[in-house]
């Protein structure tokens, strides 16, 4: 039996926001219930988010994607337009937990958990997503790049709820990829996760984003490496140099899943591989012009 707590079941968003002060939001529960059972979490009152209307809605138009705060990882996988609207996020969703966990876990909950191994976060950083936060006193938007402040620490205030996430659809000159290194493809915690976005303009890379998971207290963007690639033609040598810079920016730990050295080496290899793949996939498109 789980330790005792109160459980609020508000019927809509407004009621939810008034119940949040002092309460702990419960969405999929795939972290929260596990933590409660392990006595790592001591929430006295949970606020169930499952009755908020249209909270799982996904809106995708030509340029823009917006997902509701209740959107599950499974919803990302089942939405056929998402493969173009967020290729890296679909890649992460495919290797996220198992089917049942994907059907329960929300993207917003994964973002809020703040785990450096949260698999939706490198893709969302590589897509430069915006997080919409609401409380009973107002609404604000925070870029995901400035959301995390430390291990499992983020900008969400106790009485705020992530009501949605949004980002721009990658254009035809942009490639967006994710790779998760883990013991298995599903049901496994990430050893290293890498998401990259590369935009090509003629023979140059006009924009690059590299997001690294599970190699620092938070998921983060390797901006030194990104700067090396921006406005340059991407040669094998430059890609390797940037991948080494990404490795230098990572600060992993030794744990049961891998050593810090192995993680650093993997950042180098995976970043090099993904940037190369992204760049070459765009070369084909340039040639078609």
């Amino acid at each position: 039996m789980l330790r005792e707590f109160e459980l609020d079941l508000p019927g809509d968003l407004q009621e939810t926001l008034t119940r949040l002060p002092g309460g702990t939001p419960l969405a999929g529960g795939t972290n929260l219930l596990v933590d409660l059972r392990a006595r790592r979490e001591e929430a006295k009152r949970l606020v169930w988010l499952g009755n908020i209307e249209a909270f799982r809605d996904i809106k995708i138009d030509k340029a823009h994607v917006a997902i509701g705060g209740g959107t599950t990882v499974g919803d990302i996988l089942r939405n056929s337009a998402m493969i173009d609207a967020a290729p890296s996020l679909v890649g992460a969703a495919r290797v996220f937990g198992g089917q049942m966990v994907r059907n329960q876990a929300t993207v917003a909950g994964n973002v809020c958990s703040g785990s450096p191994a949260a698999d939706t976060v490198p893709p969302l950083l590589s897509l430069d997503a915006e997080i919409c936060l609401a409380s009973s006193t107002g609404v604000r938007s925070v870029p995901i790049d400035s959301f995390y402040s430390g291990f499992k620490k983020n900008q969400r205030k106790q009485d705020e709820l992530i009501t949605g996430l949004s980002w721009s659809v990658p254009g035809p000159s942009t490639a967006n990829l994710f790779y998760k290194l883990a013991r298995r493809k599903g049901d496994a915690i990430t050893v290293v996760g890498v998401a990259v976005t590369v935009t090509r303009d003629g023979d140059r890379c006009s924009d690059a984003r590299i997001a690294l998971g599970a190699v620092a207290p938070t998921v983060f963007r390797a901006k030194d490496a990104e700067a090396m690639l921006t406005d340059q033609p991407l040669t094998e040598e430059l890609i390797d140099e940037a991948a080494r810079a990404a490795m230098a920016q990572s600060n992993p730990i030794d744990d049961i899943r891998a050593s810090a050295d192995y993680r650093r080496h993997t950042v180098h290899m995976l970043t090099r591989r993904l940037i190369g793949q992204a760049w070459r996939s765009l070369a084909g498109k340039e040639a078609d012009k």
Binding site: L7, L9, L26, G28, G29, T30, L33, V34, R37, A38, L46, W48, G50, G74, G97, G98, Q99, M100, V101, N103, Q104, D187
Partner: peptide, 26 residues
């Protein structure tokens, strides 16, 4: 009882979920 094994899977409105990670009231 932590969402790894799937032995407790049931469908809610047709969607498979782990019943060990679902509160009965919900």
């Amino acid at each position: 009882e932590k969402g790894d094994c799937g032995a407790c899977a049931v469908q809610i409105d047709g969607e498979p979920v782990d019943s060990c990670l679902t509160l009965a009231w919900t």
